[in-house]
Amino acid sequence: MTQQPTPGVSRQDVFPQSAPSLLTGVPAFLGRAAGGPHTPQRLTLWPQFEAAYGSSAPGFLADVVRGFFDNGGLLCHVVRLDESRPTPSAALQTALDELDRLDGDVDLVCAPDIVTDPLWPTNGLLDPVVDQQQMLLRHCRERGDRFALLDGIPTTDTAKVMEQSGKLTGADGAFGALYYPWLRAPGGDGRLRPLPPSGHVAGVYSAGDQRFGVQRAPANTEVEGVVDLQVRLAAADVGTLYGQGVNCLRALPGRGVRVWGARTLAQDPAWRDVSARRLVGAIGRWVERFMAGLVHEPNDVRLWVRIMRELTAYLDDLFQRGALKGRTPAEAFFVKCDHETNPPEAVEAGVVVTWIGVAPTAPAEFISVRVIHGASGVTVDAG
Rank of each mutant, 00 (worst) to 15 (best):
143 R>G: 15
46 W>Q: 14
334 F>L: 09
19 A>C: 02
300 D>V: 03
372 I>P: 01
179 Y>L: 11
121 P>Q: 11
107 D>Y: 06
65 V>E: 11
349 A>M: 08
363 P>M: 07
362 A>Y: 02
123 N>C: 04
60 F>N: 05
295 V>L: 15
89 S>G: 14
153 I>P: 04
142 E>K: 07
284 G>E: 14
107 D>R: 07
379 T>L: 13
59 G>N: 05
275 S>F: 02
117 D>L: 02
145 D>N: 12
51 A>S: 14
127 D>W: 11
144 G>W: 05
164 Q>H: 11
280 V>M: 12
346 A>Y: 11
154 P>E: 01
379 T>E: 14
27 P>G: 08
218 P>N: 11
40 P>E: 02
25 G>H: 04
311 L>R: 05
156 T>Q: 12
59 G>A: 02
308 M>N: 11
227 V>S: 12
249 L>T: 06
374 G>V: 03
263 R>C: 05
174 A>H: 01
96 L>V: 11
231 V>I: 08
260 W>I: 05
219 A>F: 04
126 L>W: 06
154 P>Y: 00
377 G>H: 06
55 S>A: 15
61 L>I: 08
31 G>D: 05
353 V>T: 13
112 P>T: 10
296 H>P: 00
350 G>L: 08
109 V>C: 08
383 G>E: 13
93 Q>M: 10
31 G>Y: 02
170 G>H: 04
319 F>G: 01
372 I>K: 14
13 D>F: 12
113 D>A: 03
199 G>Q: 09
81 L>C: 00
184 R>A: 11
211 R>Q: 14
342 N>Y: 06
372 I>E: 14
51 A>G: 08
118 P>H: 01
167 K>T: 01
265 L>S: 04
17 Q>A: 15
381 D>S: 13
335 V>N: 06
54 G>N: 08
245 G>H: 00
136 L>E: 01
222 E>S: 12
263 R>N: 06
233 L>H: 04
181 P>V: 01
201 V>K: 05
16 P>V: 04
65 V>F: 07
118 P>G: 06
347 V>N: 02
304 W>T: 01
282 A>L: 05
187 G>I: 10
378 V>M: 07
301 V>T: 13
78 V>P: 06
99 L>W: 05
325 K>I: 07
50 E>Q: 13
165 S>R: 00
184 R>Y: 11
302 R>A: 14
373 H>Q: 12
119 L>G: 09
311 L>Q: 15
257 V>I: 15
284 G>M: 06
127 D>C: 00
369 V>A: 10
94 T>F: 12
254 G>Q: 06
68 F>C: 12
60 F>M: 04
153 I>G: 00
77 H>S: 09
281 G>R: 03
362 A>W: 01
162 M>P: 00
166 G>I: 07
90 A>E: 14
95 A>N: 10
4 Q>N: 12
356 I>Y: 03
133 Q>P: 03
